[in-house]
Nucleic acid binder design. Structure first.
Lengths: 151, 151
DNA sequence: ACTAAATAGTGCGATATCGTACAAATGAGG
DNA sequence: CCTCATTTGTACGATATCGCACTATTTAGT
C-alpha cells in the first residue's frame, strides 16, 4: 500500500525530469538535423526503418503516440522532402501505405551519424549499463500509460 | 571504454522512451487541467511554489530550460488568468519579478489534487522505490545535458 | 442487402513554440 | 564619464501541434 505523502512527490519529480530531459535532448537533436527538420521527422523515419515500412499512418500515429492530425502534417513534410512516399493501401481504400525512399533511409543514417559524437559524449559520462538498468522501468511506465490512455 | 555498437542504440532507446513518456504524461496532465491551460502553465506555478516566487522571467526560463520567448508567452497567459502578477524589478529596470497570486497557489493545489488519482494509479503499479531508484540517473542526465548546452 | 456505427485520413482554426530582431538598461574598459 | 558589448524582455513571423468536424470507406448488426 503506497503512502501518498512520499509517492506523489516522487512521481512528480520523475515526470518533471523526464520532461526536461526530453526538452533538452530534442533541442540538441534538432540542431544536428538539416534546417527545417524536427525530431518528429526523424522519429517517423527511424520507426519505419526499425520496424519496417509499408505501415499505415494510423499505425504509426498509434505507435508513436501522436494525434493523427499531427502525423498527417509530419508525413506531408517528409513526403514533400522526398523522404517517404505515400501510396494507396490495397487492403483499405480509406487508408495509405507509408514507404521509405532511398533518400529517407539515407537521411536517417546521416542523422544518426551526426548525432554520434553527442551520443558518445553522453556515453562517456554514463556507462551503458547504467542506462540499460533504467530502460525496463521506462518501458514499463510507457506501456502502462499507453494502455491506460485507451481505457 | 564504451562500445559504440551497443551504447548508441541503448541511448537512442532511452531518449525515445523518455520522449513518449513525456508525450503521454503531458497529454494526461492536460486533460486534468481546466480548459485552456497546459502543462507549461502548471510547470511555472509549480516551480514558483517550490522554489519561491519573486524570480525574474529569465531565472525561470533557465531553470525550466525553455526559450525565453516561449516563457514570455506562458507568463502572459498566467497573468491574464490572474494566477501570477508581473511587477517591475527594483534591482534591474530591464527585468521583472514574477509573483504568485492566491489564485495561482490555489490553481496549483487543485491541479495536483485532480492528478492525485492518476498518480495513485501509477503508484499502485510501480512501487515508489523503483521510481526513486531511477531518479538519480535522470537527474544526472538532465544536469549533464543542461551543462553541455551552455558550452 | 441495408442501415448504423466505427474508422482512416484531411481541412481548418486556434494556439503553442521558438528563432530573429529589436529597444531599453546594465556593466565593463578605457 | 563615455563607448561598446551584454543582458532582459518583447514584438513579430514562421511553423508545429492538436482538437473538431467532415468525407469516404469499412464493419457490424439485423
Amino acid at each position: 500500500m503506497p503512502k501518498p505523502e512520499q509517492t506523489i512527490p516522487t512521481l512528480f519529480r520523475f515526470f518533471n525530469e523526464v520532461g526536461i530531459i526530453n526538452q533538452l535532448s530534442s533541442r540538441l537533436f534538432e540542431t544536428r538535423l538539416p534546417d527545417g527538420f524536427l525530431v518528429s521527422h526523424f522519429t517517423v523515419l527511424n520507426h519505419l526503418t526499425r520496424l519496417g515500412d509499408g505501415r499505415t499512418p494510423m499505425d504509426i500515429a498509434t505507435a508513436l503516440q501522436v494525434p493523427k492530425t499531427s502525423l498527417t502534417h509530419t508525413l506531408s513534410g517528409l513526403s514533400k522532402a522526398g523522404l517517404i512516399s505515400l501510396e494507396p493501401n490495397p487492403k483499405d481504400a480509406r487508408s495509405k501505405c507509408v514507404l521509405l525512399t532511398d533518400a529517407g533511409r539515407q537521411f536517417r543514417e546521416d542523422a544518426i551519424a551526426s548525432l554520434g559524437p553527442d551520443m558518445m559524449d553522453v556515453a562517456e559520462h554514463f556507462p551503458p549499463e547504467r542506462i540499460a538498468e533504467a530502460l525496463p522501468l521506462l518501458e514499463d511506465i510507457r506501456a502502462f500509460l499507453d494502455k491506460r490512455r485507451d481505457g
